[in-house]
Design a protein around this nucleic acid. Sequence first.
DNA 1: ATAAATGCAAAAGCTTTGCATGACC
DNA 2: GGTCATGCAAAGCTTTTGCATTTAT
Lengths: 142, 142
Amino acid sequence: MDTILELIKQSGGRLTKTRQAIIRLLTGSECLLSGADILAGLKKLKLSPDRTTIFRELNYLTKLGIVVKSSINGKDCYEIQDEHDHHHHLICLNCKDIQKVELNSHLESQERQIKKQTNFRITGHALEFYGYCIKCKAASGK
Amino acid sequence: MDTILELIKQSGGRLTKTRQAIIRLLTGSECLLSGADILAGLKKLKLSPDRTTIFRELNYLTKLGIVVKSSINGKDCYEIQDEHDHHHHLICLNCKDIQKVELNSHLESQERQIKKQTNFRITGHALEFYGYCIKCKAASGK
DNA sequence: ATAAATGCAAAAGCTTTGCATGACC
DNA sequence: GGTCATGCAAAGCTTTTGCATTTAT
């Protein structure tokens, strides 16, 4: 958290209320948040910035590498970049619920392999499993 | 290809020109195609259906399980569902180019593990690596 | 003949841009 | 005081919906 604020100041950014609240929301979240999720979270904190501000902020944080952006169901979703918390997501095709899942995966070694083979510089990855959560299994037609 | 057409007929669907052309485009494609990509491909074949038709068609094929939909850069992208061709994607953050990559991955066994642990019914997954392709490495600020 | 597919117009979501105003350091 | 951040209005892009018409079987 402190390193994040440091990074922002270093790059000439300011520590506004909204910015700090957004970072706190993302840091505290167990899962991916959309622009709308962030907006809802801020309202609970008695902050009501314009949607424009949210998106500008999220793009700003993405460019600084503080958050990671991914696309789910046509929406941009964001989460804090954290080398140590390595997880992925289960996305229900019926209720659109997203849940976190931990994998003891070999993705890191595979990334190294890909780098060698393709010369592509990998800066991150997203792994999403699609299907039906417990509640929606019935609705899925088996 | 024949099994696909069979599946469509069985479910009461018709084999229209556009539908067949879309399936051929997706079957022939090395990579994920967006709605706009499909539209462009059809124009080359002297077909110019409305955008609406494309999206309706892609949703239809998705529901039948013939194609798989995923979200990339805020756009819905589609590819033919193929159990045997198991690959993933490298997405350049700069030029948005998508390239295919083959992984000798352990994802299948991990899917089984997740099923046990969470009771989530997994029907598919998407693995995307983000970063910078060879051409764009320079533009990325190293 | 019947049900499915299409085109067109319109709207709905989500995200971005431009510009003037206001806030942080 | 200068630069960064914000709000508002408007536009952009992708996708969806409704309805009347056409087409495949």
